[in-house]
Design a protein around this nucleic acid. Structure first.
Lengths: 348, 348
DNA sequence: CGAGATCGCTAATGCGCTTTAGTCTGGCTG
DNA sequence: CAGCCAGACTAAAGCGCATTAGCGATCTCG
């Protein structure tokens, strides 16, 4: 009879205690660096632990009040728009890097929508699963900060503007208002006066922020033919909106897309309509990726270091878990990489 | 003095017991559907639990032998090639769907390389963090199945051919040998006799399988000018290899790319060299995605349902966790979606 | 009608760890 | 030399849950 699984019992502190000839408490003291044991004993215990390949059971640790050594990350996006941009994997990659150093786990979950996401937080909290969470895609009028405050779950909001109503949360964000201003500056300098902004999901804080900033920048320069059109980030939407705005006599001469996928789809759509990029219309993608250099012409894009963004967020969260104060930190404004899709505006 | 965080204590079974006027054990019996309490009491307890918003502490559960209610997923790929294809997020999305139903958490980690990945498994096991794991990117001569067997950690290998040496592991895979045969069939029928296969990472089981199958198919038809070139999946490699194989007098008339990104990069490279797709050279991408319809010409691609793939894998793992036997299940062979990048071979 | 089975429930134990409250020894002080 | 105290360590309790043993009360059947 072969057993179901080879047992391979994991060593516990009791095993260490026995082998080292001390009590379990001594082992605990020794391994956690607290006073109560002599240095000699501490060393011996450490050696035995290492030799046995001992690692603390997170379950037991969590149960005795130490926290779960895990942070949570929920992604609430329509299933269709999931794999399209590379931003999230890069972000997660950066997050991981920092968490791994401290042996913190990352509990990952995909949710249907924001209510579902809130339910996940509640469950995680009740189940004692996570010590803190990373929140992405902050919205205008977002229910999550309030909930997390209420639950007392440490959290850092990624990509949101600081929210003074929830001083318990940290925020890590890039000033896309500044980036938008820079883009408009550049386009204006090239002679563009009619600009369309194919925006992302309405309701997302940064979408609204970009739209607001664009409007403000336009007003500041007396441009009246500037518009923002929200989408769902999909390539279909990008193409459809492109066709729509390009239709008619006073078509924009510059298009700003809120992600790379839409930009690529938009270029294809524009080309089909007989527009040449950048001769007839300039294109800027808000998010750089391999994609931007996979198509012709190469896309000018706003580039940021998403991995570093993730690292920063994770660092803020660990600081919070260590009992530090909530902070608001700004990561560098995305920079415009000028490639082949932007040029001097066609003479009207 | 405002406390650091609002306490918001989570309810425990003791609270329920008190409110329902029964013992803790009765509560446990009631809530877990085991015999030992009357239906009346069970209902009452359930109601109280719900009203209190009680959820079992996974820590406590895990400690009392029930497992951690979590499965692990490690991604070991070079950081650069991380966000490029949409396969993983879709896979994870499918996995989630199944896990969420059973309230299983997904612990996600990115590793440097396969040794690092093994270390992660060891740690997870020792820390009692996961009940099972999902393994991707199986390799020829893979150390992971052996390790997982040794640790007694239930696991399902995603995308690997069945491995009779480790009967404890389940396997979920698509028969890409069959798919490759179908692709070659199609290309052959279109008159293609010289085919280049821009393959993925060498050492990955499915890369080797595809290469082997292609060779076999070529031999079967007496084609001598068929080659496979392994790459690192990056767009740069895709472009570089494309330029290389297209150079010279007997250039292939058909190119098979092991992912969508390389295919797109390859088309761009070929176009630069003066080749027209599909007039001069046909292109097939092994992995369909939005990307394939973002470029001109639209790419013919092998399409599979990655989300369903993930679902299937997760289902197998949960079956394993329930004590079921290890199984090998095949998901449907990817189907060739013929779009605009494949055509009749140019007359030689 | 009494012995055993069954039901509905409670008390107690253990999972692996942290932490508090001791215990004991040796050295130091007055 | 009694009295104290610091240092090194142990004993025990508790975290939230599952589980086993146990205990009356009711039921069943010979």
């Amino acid at each position: 009879m072969t057993g179901k699984r080879s047992p391979a019992r994991r060593p516990t502190m009791k095993d260490i205690a026995r082998r080292a000839g001390v009590s379990e408490s001594a082992v605990s003291f020794a391994l956690n660096g607290r006073p109560g044991v002599s240095e000699v004993t501490r060393d011996r215990v450490r050696r035995v632990a290492e030799q046995l390949g001992w690692r603390p059971s997170t379950a037991a640790r969590a149960l005795s009040g130490e926290g779960a050594a895990t942070v949570g990350f929920v992604l609430a996006r329509p299933a269709g728009t999931l794999g399209v941009d590379s931003f999230f994997l890069q972000l997660v990659s950066g997050i991981q890097e920092v968490l791994a150093e401290r042996h913190l786990g990352l509990l990952f979950q995909i949710a249907e929508d924001i209510d579902d996401e809130c339910a996940v937080y509640r469950r995680w909290w009740a189940e004692h699963r996570v010590d803190g969470v990373l929140v992405v895609d902050p919205r205008t009028d977002d229910p999550r900060p309030g909930l997390l405050d209420e639950l007392g779950l440490p959290a850092v909001v990624i990509g949101g503007a600081p929210d003074e109503r929830h001083p318990g949360l940290s925020t890590v964000w890039a000033d896309d208002a500044g980036a938008m201003a820079a883009v408009v500056d550049g386009l204006y300098a090239l002679g563009h006066r009619r600009i369309a902004h194919i925006a992302g999901l309405p309701g997302l804080a940064h979408t609204e922020r970009r739209i607001r900033t664009l409007r403000a920048e336009a007003e500041r320069r007396g441009l009246s033919e500037v518009q923002s059109v929200p989408t769902d980030y999909s390539d279909e939407a990008g193409a459809a909106v492109t066709r729509r705005v390009l239709h008619g006599p006073a078509a924009p001469t510059a298009l700003i897309y809120d992600n790379d996928v839409m930009a690529v789809a938009g270029v294809a759509a524009a080309t089909e309509l007989g527009f040449t990029v950048p001769a007839d219309v300039s294109v800027v993608a808000w998010e750089d990726s391999a994609l931007c250099r996979l198509v012709k012409p190469w896309l000018s894009a706003l580039s940021r270091d998403s991995v570093e963004f993730g690292r920063t967020a994770a660092r803020e969260l660990t600081a919070l878990l260590d009992g530090g104060p909530a902070r608001t930190v700004r990561v560098p404004v995305p920079g415009l990489i000028e490639r082949d899709s932007t040029g001097v505006a066609r003479a009207v």
